[in-house]
């Protein structure tokens, strides 16, 4: 039998029409593609980019919320927030590992994040000035992430799909703790309610932008759909999110900051859904290109953590070397 290493096996493919057709046929049969399988270079590249960006988003996403751990208003909220931020770190790890099965190294990915070359979800470039932001992030941002991530559990690339199943299992608590925190504010004093409305106003539009540009302007979408990396278009997912979230806001007595939002009974093939106002894509691109309020801060924080962790990594390696040397010596005696 022929054997292969798991990572770093020769991944070069000659992409004849026959090869591409065979690959597509596997995808069409809903077969999962695994690390050792031959795959078009474009498929690999798309996944490395997407999974890497996703992993970075989980890690950078720890920052806006981490900002409030020490100031959470009760032990209950603090425990929940701590657990959530810890989960996000884990999500980053699951995803980096999935990307590594495609031959990219963790060092490469880390380097790209720290140098500012790699992208991550723009939502994390918005600040979290009040406690209400934390609840709102759980509710809206994790809510939007769940909408995006549930179809990724059926992604054609096996390691990514399996990582997403794990992630999705953990996300439900994130959204629920957020909604509960916002609900408590909405049941509180006039000031607390105002705080919740203010956070909602600031996060609503950026949350809608999380689904990416409109389908017509989305450059990679079509091929990703064909390869079943993506299962729904950006606009489809955005619509699902809006339809699920508006009633949740209404229940809290919050006003959606969109004067054009209105129920349209014809939408979704007669099931009904919400029409919404124009998204400010200039703002979206501004933040993507690095000019959001917090872009520089986030990268700075990651670099600081990396630099200040250097001695820990070095010490761990030195310790491991010493231990290995001791064991070798003992074995020789």
């Amino acid at each position: 039998m022929y054997s292969q290493g798991l990572i770093g096996a020769d991944s070069a493919t000659t992409e004849t029409e026959e090869f591409l057709a065979k690959f597509q046929a596997r995808i069409d049969r809903e077969e999962k593609i695994e690390p050792n399988d031959a795959m078009p270079a474009g498929y690999r590249k798309t996944l490395v980019r997407q999974i890497g960006q996703h992993a970075h988003s989980e890690i950078v996403g720890m920052l806006p919320e981490g900002n409030w751990i020490t100031r959470a208003p009760s032990l209950r909220r603090k425990a929940a927030l701590l657990a959530k931020v810890q989960d996000e770190g884990g999500h980053g790890l699951y995803l980096y590992s999935a990307a590594e099965t495609l031959g990219v190294t963790r060092e490469q990915m880390t380097e790209e994040l720290l140098s500012g070359k790699a992208k991550y979800s723009s939502i994390f470039n918005y600040p979290t000035p009040t406690w209400a932001d934390i609840g709102t992030i759980g509710w809206l941002v994790d809510g939007a992430a769940i909408m995006n991530q549930i179809p990724l559990c059926r992604c054609s690339y096996g390691p990514y799909a399996r990582a997403m199943i794990r992630v999705c299992k953990e996300e439900s608590f994130h959204q629920r703790q957020g909604y509960e925190a916002v609900m408590k504010l909405c049941q509180g004093t006039e000031e607390q309610k105002q705080m919740a409305q203010d956070a909602f106003n600031r996060w609503w539009w950026p949350s809608l932008m999380m689904f990416g540009p409109h389908d017509a302007d989305s450059s990679h979408s079509e091929q990703s759909m064909k390869w079943k990396i993506k299962r729904f278009s950006n606009d489809e997912l955005r619509q699902k999110f809006i339809d699920a979230t508006v009633p949740q806001a209404e229940y809290l007595g919050l006003t959606v900051p969109d004067p054009d939002l209105k129920w349209n009974p014809e939408k979704n093939n007669g099931k009904g859904g919400y029409d919404h106002g124009e998204i400010d894509w200039d703002e979206f691109w501004r933040v993507v290109k690095g000019h959001g309020q917090m872009n520089r801060d986030r990268i700075k924080a990651r670099n600081k953590a990396w630099d200040e962790g250097a001695w820990v990594r070095d010490a761990a390696l030195a310790h491991a070397e010493k231990r290995a040397a001791r064991q070798q010596k003992q074995a020789a005696e």
Binding site: G143, S172, F173, Q175, R176, Q177, Y179, E180, M183, A244, P247, Q248, Y251
Partner: peptide, 11 residues
């Protein structure tokens, strides 16, 4: 652990 009212749908 978190109490979410049924009216707001699955979460």
């Amino acid at each position: 652990f978190y109490e979410i009212p049924e009216e707001v749908g699955h979460m």
